[in-house]
Amino acid sequence: MEDLRESLWEETSLEGVQTLIAGLRDSLGVEHAVYHVVGGTGREYGAFTYSSDWVDHYKAEEFYRHDPVVNEAIRRFHPLDWKTLDWGPKKARQILTEAIDGGIGKQGLSIPVRGVGGQFAMFSVTGFESDAAWDKFIDEKCRDVLLSAHYIHDRVAQLMDGENTILAKPLSPRERDALAMLAAGKSRAEAADRLKISEHTFRVYVDTARHKLGAMNTVHAVAKAVSSGLILP
């Protein structure tokens, strides 16, 4: 997700999240993107790129009671490829047929996200590709979809609750060192060598730091670490 527009990195309002989700859709190259969260207290929020007619219809028909995507996501943590789910029951087939007719998508990939305090969220992307083309999309983009899901979740959680909602300890010296090396323009190989760790371990430390900072990508993580005074520019 190195190509998400920089202007979307730090949305500061829930309206801005609508712009963010459209940005994620464009960046991932999918038909639609949708994020929905139910807080521990039952408070809900959703952002989506399709028309609100579908959402109203979905709610009025109580599709969420029969939607295999929802039923799986609440019990699983792995990315869910819609075509691997059980669309056998009549009501499930109806949901899929109407989603296709309504221009929502015939393929989908959904990421369950669990937050602190019993939050449950789901981020989904959709398309009209063939099965083979969708398999290829997942093969190439599953990581970006995972990153997008957790990124938008963190943005929304912060805007709704006004605090950092990532369940993590502060950055360790090792993670700060890793980001500082990148800020100083060192290559991954040079930085790993300096820190006396493997390149793979270096990559993991940068990634855990990125996640803790609620950053979309490495460049964003370095920028956030500098601006918050965690590392020197």
Partner: peptide
């Protein structure tokens, strides 16, 4: 991204880094 055995009990085995990411 949730509580794990290593995060809760073995941080000394991970270089004092709290290993958390949707990609791990």
């Amino acid at each position: 991204t949730e509580r794990t055995m290593i995060r809760d009990h073995f941080e000394d085995l991970t270089d004092s880094v709290d290993i958390t990411s949707p990609l791990i």
